[in-house]
């Protein structure tokens, strides 16, 4: 029987795709996209807002230019976009910034299917296409967007003196060589990047990674203080792009104290085939309900330990 098994497997293997075609595809993708699977734009962007929150009032006070008691603004919905170096979207978060400085954030998996493609390619085409699709999916008006390169993350974590996270179990990532013990730990620099990037060795792959990003984000927000806000704002400011017509300084005045962030992940359905590989389906009716609940005050302000 063993020979028969050998023959059967060899026959199966013989069906392989043509190596030349695969090679050409590989070259094409190498040109168009660096494989930088870091999904953390969320954190940077919220930190940018939070940092601005702490620093702007301080600066204004120093220069005596602060308008007397700025009117408390209403809630604003901001789409936070984390990109790789080629403007592909690696992380997408729809956040509602309350007038009181509270933040509700919903992570949108970047592989959600829209039309015959995926969300992750829209920003590069036209930021307005991305915000329009997000509005259609969630029925939430997107007031502004802000985009940031995620490669900045190592330094940002260093600037705040490390970010506290907690792991359920020790893990190792054979790809980056990073290894993390179980329990509470403080991460910065390369370790922070590795923590945010790891997917191999996590049982739920991307889903676990999104949870890690949320845990990191919450840990990061907790580290922001007046002492590091200036450096942080300078660092983050280098790589953040926002839509024209958004007065970020005015926006930032809503933040007066430590920022509390509630996070959740938009539930998605089964994988579907798209022209750019496998995507995830999302039902607009469900998405609207979920975001509504989250923005209405549900969701967790701490993720506890993550995988």
């Amino acid at each position: 029987m063993n020979d028969l098994i050998r023959q059967a497997i060899a026959a199966e293997a013989e069906e392989r795709a043509d190596a030349g075609t695969v090679l050409a595809g590989l070259r094409e993708r190498r040109k168009s996209r660096k494989p930088f699977g870091l999904i953390v734009g969320v954190a940077t962007l919220t930190v940018a807002a939070a940092a601005a929150a702490v620093i702007v009032p301080t600066t204004l006070r120093k220069t005596d230019a602060a308008p007397a008691g700025p009117p408390p603004a209403g809630p604003q919905n901001v789409l936070l976009i984390g990109t790789d170096d080629h403007d592909n979207t690696d992380a997408l978060v729809l956040a509602r910034f309350g007038g009181d400085g509270s933040v509700s954030a919903v992570s949108l998996p970047r592989d959600i299917q829209v039309g015959d493609g995926k969300l992750n390619s829209l920003f590069r085409q036209d930021p307005r296409r991305l915000t329009a699709e997000v509005e259609r999916l969630t029925s939430v008006r997107v007031d502004h967007y802000a985009a940031v390169r995620m490669a900045e993350f190592g330094r940002i974590s260093e600037l705040v003196g490390g970010v506290d996270v907690c792991l359920h179990a020790a893990t190792e990532d054979p790809l980056t060589g990073a290894s993390f013990p179980a329990g509470r730990q403080t991460l910065s620099g390369e370790h922070a990047l590795a923590f945010l990037r790891q997917r191999m060795g996590l049982h739920q792959g991307d889903l676990d990674r999104v949870r890690r990003h949320q845990a990191f984000l919450i840990g990061l927000a907790a580290r922001i203080s007046k002492d590091n806000a200036l450096a942080l704002a300078a660092e983050v400011g280098k790589s953040v792009r926002v839509d024209e017509g958004w007065d970020v300084l005015a926006f930032a005045q809503r933040f007066q104290g430590p920022v509390e962030i509630r996070t959740a992940t938009l539930p998605v359905g089964d994988p579907v085939d798209t022209t750019s590989g496998q995507g995830l389906s999302a039902d607009p009716a469900q998405a609207r309900q979920f975001v509504e609940k989250q923005f209405g005050g549900e969701g967790s302000t701490q993720t506890g330990c993550v995988a």
Partner: peptide, 25 residues
């Protein structure tokens, strides 16, 4: 690699996707 991936997946398209993604990484 393509032969191996095709043999374990029994699907040449899936095999191609996986090999491409892995090589990019």
């Amino acid at each position: 690699l393509l032969r191996y991936a095709t043999a374990i997946t029994c699907d040449k398209h899936l095999a191609q996707d996986i090999v491409q993604n892995v090589l990019m990484r």
